[in-house]
Design a protein around this nucleic acid. Sequence first.
RNA 1: GCGCCUGUAGCUCAGGGGAUAGAGCAACGGAUUCCUAAUCCGUGUGCCGCAGGUUCGAAUCCUGCCAGGCGCACCA
Length: 569
Amino acid sequence: MQKLKEEISLLLSSCLPLEPAVIEDLLEIPPDPNFGDLAFPCFTLAKTYKKAPALIADELAAGLTAQKGVYWGRVTAGGPYLNFFIAPEAYGREVLREVWKEGEKYGHCAIGKGRNVTIDYSSPNIAKPFGIGHIRSTVIGHALYLIFRALGYSSIGVNHLGDWGTQFGKLIVAYKRWGDEDQLEADPVDYLYRLYVKFHQCAEEDSSLEDEARLWFKKLEEENCEAVDYWNRFRRLSLENYALIYQLLGIEFEHYHGESHYNKMLDDVIELVLEKGIAEESEGALIVDLEPHGLPPVMLRKKDGATLYITRDLAAAIYRKNTFDFALSLYVVGAEQTLHFQQLFKVLELLGFKWAKDCVHVPFGLIRFKEGRMSTRAGKIVLLEEVLKRSIDMARDIIEEKNPDLADKERAALAVGLGAVRFGDLSNDRIKNIEFDWEKVLDFSGETAAYIQYAHARICSILRKAGPDCGNWNDQAASLLIKEEEIMLIKTLAILPEKIVAAAEVYRPSIIARYLVDVAREFNRFYHNCPVLSSTGELQRGRLLLIGATRQVIANGLALLGIEAPHEM
RNA sequence: GCGCCUGUAGCUCAGGGGAUAGAGCAACGGAUUCCUAAUCCGUGUGCCGCAGGUUCGAAUCCUGCCAGGCGCACCA
């Protein structure tokens, strides 16, 4: 809680040659509650005072021993640390009051007010099925979208659809050779996917197919009617399929600006690059030599005149700056494209755009099979639809077993099943590779979304039984929570705001996911040691306020991850 | 060959200068006349990949090495 930090910083600044803000930064939460609730490390003072840190801590503690503050009760020296212990009554009351007052807004703030952040996420390649690999960009990007919005930014979600490029040449070639109208209509994305795989199988033996594909893409860029017709059709069919998945996941974008959206701007980009004199001809292609900057060269135009991925990304970056005037532009794209983004941002910088520094690649690791990486071309992928379906089925089975009388089982199954898949992806550090394992995906025990959702549902159940009065704030009741489990839970609830800020600073939703596991764990400990409904009087009112606040924190946190908090499950 | 990322308990992973390195899973034992046991409590395990260095202090920062992953001109 911020007020505790402020109080202690102010106190220490009166007896130390340090500004309150500096002290506030130094304050840390000790690893063990026996060391107190907030500690000031004295190492940095050792040099100024020419004394051992432990001695400084002793002297500071001695000077403060007779005092206590509003939110802290006592202070001791613990080795080189000055350890403050909270005053549970006032502290607990203040934390809970804040949660109750802010409600759905608890943890949110306004530090990003008036600033736009564009977030490029999901961005699937049209005409390829939505594989499990695509879920990472989709859920990480969407979580960042929600997190930045909670900090007061205007989040602008952009789905940079891969709806342009040589793969369309490949599809056109494949469809012209082997295509079948009925099969396409029956299950468009699956059929296009099979054609795509077949193309690559045949191209292994007959490399002229690749040349033919490049030719068709060139025709597409030249707006050849036949090519454009195919493209339009493939694109539309794919988008209809993605829409179902986005709807299921509750994801919306402000803009569906796919790569094709930038076609009209590519000539201007090439012209700009030539004008700035940073590009050169090489073997018939147009490249930018990034050697002086320690990067491999990038190609902006192929020798046949067609453009490339990075050309469109340059146009997109400039377009986004001009259109949205972003303070920050995030690209939630796999780590295997790190070099691409280094090159992209460097070219923007060479073009003289000062805002190039505001562009950030937010990379994440691959989802792999035990045996190796997934590959759309080779047909080795797991469909996201299948993962979601099986996860929901599993949730449905468990509900049937655990809570057969539940009124709306389907709704709970969706919340739990979808939450499990999302959480599995969000709870680990995004940079690490994930090994795909059905058993892990379908395990709802331990550190999972279901664990957190279950805590939420249990609280809702207690609150329902307690009746409508438990929603009324009461200062006195909130001051009675001094049992260890109550205090631990309150202290955990207190740090949601800083967790959200921390998650945004390093673009890591996993910080919030991990935090929610802590909240649920502390709640469960409380739940098993402190009866709520069978306690009486003011204490019961106080505990109801505590679990009400806990419910709010879980709901707010899960909302930032795009995960539902069911009232029953 | 060059560059980037990762290496922590049997497995999956937190911790990313600071106090005795923590969770979950798996194993074993316990808790339900009481708010949904998808829970809780207890038991055991660590050359924090290896070797140097910086620091009062290193799992954490730097250098080198090893292992795995990912990239490196006409794909995206």
